[in-house]
Write a protein that binds this DNA or RNA. Structure first.
Length: 476
RNA sequence: GGCGCGGUAGCCAAGUGGUAAGGCCGGGCUCUGCAAAAGCCCCAUGCGUCGGUUCAAUUCCGACCCGCGCCUCCA
């Protein structure tokens, strides 16, 4: 059975399969603008996309996952100038940081990660096609704009009838939407090519219309065309990109290639709230992965938190939520350990299946997989996993082996890596000594002394956990 | 105004026309010198409000209340 997913354009849940005659499922996801560290809101979207890709692979599809790097726009140019760096050096710094964060969060690298700067000739070619076909015009200053009124079905993704729409007098940022100011014929028209301005510094490229740089929307159209063709299977991004970015992509691509059906399926994920509030710079709640790690959370705990809600619902990210995820992951590990013991396997034998390998057995986790396949219901899937792990009857070794096969695939699809080596917390010498003395006191049944030493340890912020044949010191 | 999303226990969060998964927290028990850890058990007669359809609605329909998103470059 294929994976079913809600499609933004048709507003229906539809099966995900490659186009007839193709054997690879092509998916394009709008990637980060590399002008600073990505925040957890960005990573929610990328994590959900990662799980979709993993689930498709577990389902047996060959997937080509393309996710771009936006490395030229207002923010990257301004950032590079503020840092006194070239655009390339500046964006490389943040691209590297993005990759490091992705790896920590267990995101599989996309199969292709195109850079906008490296696809400027393709963008120019696409703009030229739009001009030649009468879908774009050149303004006095050499900028090129897409002429929305030449695209009759513009608005089809967002179900907006643009011919009837009154243009707003200002945008969401409170700035005037003044067509004249931008030399546009209509306020709905958008820039394909921006003529060179002094503040762009060294960041300009040649074009038939003079020096300048590409507009934002055209990047994704050109890169998806270059790597997936005029039509492909799925296009994803955060819900905020639905309009205008994705609407514009459709218009540009379909008008430039003359081929309708740009993306067969549109996949949008909802936004993250933080502690009940919308994330914003002014509120200072744009957490980065580093900030959460500094608070003592592991990236895997952050990942588990980011997927604790359905992708189409906004999720309230809280520190308590990450704490909850920590406890839940620990419970998942204990349950997995029990199952491994019942199957006669070691942790080392519990490896994630290679992506292309399709094992036949789901064991008791068939239901969990079924739930995940239904519009990527991650919380429902995890609920099923816990339900099975909590079942009373001890499974037979054979049953447990089948279960392990299913569980490994589920956890691979979710990208949840268990049993990661915990960071060793250095134990100060004085704490270690108190611990040793308490253990000795306990062994000699001097419980009064042992209790006092436990209190001393607590005063230093440490907890002592007694085992049968030893003890463990943990920071409390 | 246009186009959408959502309101389920203390917190988070699935789901269904036939009587509410799961996680966290909390409580109880077992184990234990103590403390933990672990295991077991308990924890919504209720799913924003009011109507309607139905043998039956949290689930469908309508109205209303509340929260949220996008509407020109924010994942």
């Amino acid at each position: 059975m294929p994976v079913f997913l809600h499609d933004t354009m048709s507003r229906e849940k539809r099966p995900l399969l490659p186009k007839p005659g193709r054997d690879v499922f092509g998916m394009y996801c709008c990637g980060p603008t590399v002008y600073g560290p990505a925040h957890i809101g960005n990573f929610r979207t990328f994590t959900v996309q990662d799980i979709l890709r993993r689930a498709l692979e577990v389902a047996g599809l060959k997937v080509k996952h393309v996710r771009n790097i936006t490395d030229v726009d207002d923010k990257t140019i301004r950032g590079a100038q503020a840092a006194g760096q070239t655009l390339g050096a500046f964006t490389k710094t943040w691209t590297d940081k993005f990759h490091a964060d992705c790896k920590a969060l267990g995101l599989l690298p996309p199969h292709v990660e195109p850079s906008a700067v490296e696809h400027i000739p393709q963008q120019v070619a696409m703009i030229k096609a739009l001009v030649d076909r009468g879908h774009a015009y050149v303004a006095k200053d050499g900028s090129v704009y897409f002429k929305v009124c030449t695209c009759p079905d513009y608005g089809k993704l967002n179900h907006i009838d643009f011919s009837k729409l009154e243009t707003q007098s200002e945008n969401s940022a409170g700035e005037a939407n003044d067509a004249d100011e931008y030399e546009r014929e209509s306020a709905s028209d958008f820039a394909l090519w921006k003529s060179r301005k002094p503040e762009d510094g060294a960041n300009f490229w040649p074009s038939p219309w003079g020096e300048g740089r590409p507009g934002w929307h055209i990047e994704c159209s050109a890169m998806s065309l270059a790597h997936l063709g005029a039509t492909f299977d799925l296009h994803g991004g955060g819900i905020d990109l639905c309009f205008p970015h994705h609407e514009n992509e459709i218009a540009q691509s379909e008008c430039a290639t003359g081929v309708k059906g740009f993306a067969a399926h549109w996949f949008h994920s909802a936004h993250l709230m933080v502690e009940g509030e919308k994330m914003s710079k002014s509120k200072g709640n744009l957490y980065t992965l580093d900030e959460l790690v500094a608070k003592g959370f592991t990236p895997m705990e952050v990942r588990a938190t980011l997927i604790s809600g359905h992708y189409r619902s906004s999720l309230n990210f809280t520190m308590k939520g990450v704490d909850d995820s920590r406890s839940a992951l620990a419970k998942l590990e204990r349950g997995t350990d029990r199952l491994l013991a019942a199957a006669g396997f070691t942790r080392a034998e519990f490896a994630a299946p290679v992506a292309q390998e399709v094992q036949t057995s789901w064991g008791r986790f068939a239901k969990a997989w079924e739930v995940l396949q239904d519009d990527l219901n991650i919380p429902g899937c995890l609920g099923q996993v816990f339900t099975v792990l909590a079942e009373k009857d001890e499974p037979s070794a054979e049953q447990a082996r089948q279960d392990i096969s299913g569980l490994a695939k589920i956890l691979f699809a979710l990208g949840l890596e268990l049993f990661a080596a915990k960071a060793e917390v250095a134990i100060p010498a004085d704490v270690a000594e108190l611990g040793a003395r308490r253990w000795a006191a306990k062994q000699s049944k001097d419980f009064a002394a042992a209790d006092q030493l436990r209190k001393d340890l607590a005063a230093l912020g440490w907890t002592m956990l007694d085992r049968k044949d030893g003890y463990e010191l943990k920071k409390s």
